[in-house]
Write a protein that binds this DNA or RNA. Structure first.
Lengths: 342, 342
DNA sequence: CTGTTAGCGCATTCAT
DNA sequence: ATGAATGCGCTAACAG
């Protein structure tokens, strides 16, 4: 058994309240006792038991990070990874730690009828929740609304969908539209638009707007799973649309997909940008520059978004009044000449 | 305030022990009371407060995962990511969750003179610890030895370095040697060997053995940081050793590095494998097949290693007797013709 | 089968 | 400035 506050108090010849006061800087204690207590703490390598402390404070200093199952393992895409890096950084600095909450593969959401993060919230394992990858279709949103209504500290990454709650986002529809416009302006008329299923509910709007505004445009939207191996599908797509279908440009929703696209192009002897133009989203600055050939991209500052979300969440937890209820991040375009002017 | 066991008991018209018994399946309770209690639990959406429970059981059902700072953010390399995926899978299945413990960038290890994971251990935040990326040079090993001596549940990923403790590993020295041998057998005599600093303490041995056994070999070991942008360095290396120095083959320690190598080759107009042969390590099966050109690789089953480590750890925690004190994972070679026979 | 009770480690209030 | 006492929510030992 590790030492408790009693052991420290006994060795230092003081009462446990004195030790507690020193631990929490909650009152003045005479220098002599401080010394004695510090000695005892080092002697035992004492650290306050978090169960005892938590029972009183109802605080764990842990933040839950949740991504629904349909968006794949958190560890899959460079987008979520950058988010995590940003989150990690802020939390570490504020002495919080990160608990990854994942839906188990087998039961998916159905174990208790509500998403996993609810357990953590109700059990008070976490002081707040960061969410990403909601797509409005699972039951996760129901649960989320419920805790938002209870004023539980939550920040979600994605578009606002409920009056309460703080969110952090980049204008997905807007930069997707810009991608299409950019290609259109260079003369491309038949474009394959890859997207992750996480964003499928935005898609109809994007397609509609693009086809309305850009008259001759023919858009071929194709969903990508985060879960299966997409390479064979891509090869089929390229055969059908690029080699056989007159399609001249591809939009990729992330660099990991772009890499596969490039290897597919290599295998099919399609040169970039001569035969096919490629435009990508990147979530880590400069990712597109590290490919060969370099790929033009819209940079979405995922790491900053993660940090921002974490900061807002910690502010909520520490009861700092928040001025903003929503924070938008700007994307930035990097032209690396992977688009051919037609 | 969320509901406590008292609220549930009151609403169900029973005592708290009855509720507790139902929660823990620890004794038979009459059907009627079970029904009443279940109704009350649903009514309140009751989940047992983990502080209360933990205070009695001294168990958090959380596992800490730690990687020292020098090996970069956990979220950087595909190796650690695969490890995490494997760990996540096993933990989720056993109703444990993962706490990421990271050293803060600013203070590095020095805050308390001991690595961050010690806090978590002593505060009883975690029931066990998974470690990866130790390199024998930081103070982390000291702390680790200490908790190993206390029989604290720990599994580390990497070579055994202390009589106590369980470890899981792939023979790093052995497959690195095989990589060199493979290239040597095909006639390569001057080889650049990239390695991550995490493994630098193994390097002297590898170089020595290779140069002893393979007479005409000239090995150029180059360390890669996980932290900075390595692309400019690689370009300089390739200019110096491949274009200017007669080097004909490159060993890459991981696919993320291999990708950069390929883009550097593209930029410098070096064709693979005609001008330069490339051999890589891959931590996710098939990674090398997704590049263009495809790259031959030694596959290190990082995900399985993560799962294995987590399983062993959970066994320790649940007091299952372990037969093994060390578990080795086999690597597998995939020939994808990225090596030219000289 | 069920209720009562002690105690887990700590912060905090109330005396002193 | 300090100690004694209370209670946070829960499990488990005990008594019935």
């Amino acid at each position: 058994m590790t030492a408790s506050i009693y052991d420290v108090a006994k060795r230092a010849g003081v009462s446990i309240s004195t030790v507690s006061r020193i631990l929490n800087n909650s009152a003045n204690v005479s220098d002599k006792k401080v010394q004695a207590v510090k000695e005892a703490m080092e002697y035992y390598q004492y650290e306050p038991n978090q169960f005892g402390r938590g029972l009183v404070k109802q605080r764990s200093n842990m933040i839950g990070v949740y991504t629904p199952f349909h968006s794949g393992s958190v560890f899959e895409s460079s987008y979520t990874l950058e988010l995590l890096k940003g989150i990690e950084r802020v939390l570490t600095r504020h002495n919080y730690s990160m608990v990854l909450i994942s839906e188990s593969e087998e039961y998916s959401n159905r174990v208790k009828g509500s998403p996993r993060f609810m357990e953590y919230v109700r059990q008070r394992r976490i002081d707040g929740l960061l969410l990403s990858g909601l797509n409005g279709k699972s039951m996760d949103e129901e649960a989320l609304k419920q805790i938002l209504d209870e004023e539980y500290p939550v920040v979600y990454i994605g578009k606002k969908f409920h009056k309460k709650g703080i969110n952090v986002y980049a204008q997905y529809e807007s930069y997707m539209h810009q991608m299409i416009e950019t290609l259109y302006a260079d003369g491309h008329r038949k474009i394959v638009l890859y997207f992750y299923t996480t964003h499928e509910n935005y898609l109809a709007g994007i397609v509609k707007k693009a086809e309305e505004e850009l008259e001759e445009l023919e858009l071929i939207p194709i969903a990508l799973s985060h879960i299966t191996d997409i390479r064979p599908d891509l090869i089929a797509d390229f055969r059908k649309y690029v080699i056989g279908g007159g399609c001249t440009a591809i939009c990729s929703p992330g660099i990991e997909t772009t890499q596969i696209i490039l290897s597919v192009c290599g295998e099919l002897r399609l040169s970039v940008p001569e035969t096919v133009s490629i435009l990508s989203v990147e979530h880590k600055s400069g990712e597109g520059r590290r490919l060969f050939p370099q790929i033009s991209a819209f940079f979405v500052p995922a790491k900053d978004m993660g940090s921002g979300a974490a900061e807002l969440l910690l502010d909520m937890i520490e009861d700092c009044p928040l001025e903003e209820t929503s924070r938008e991040y700007e994307t930035k375009f990097f032209d690396r000449e992977s688009i051919r002017q037609l």
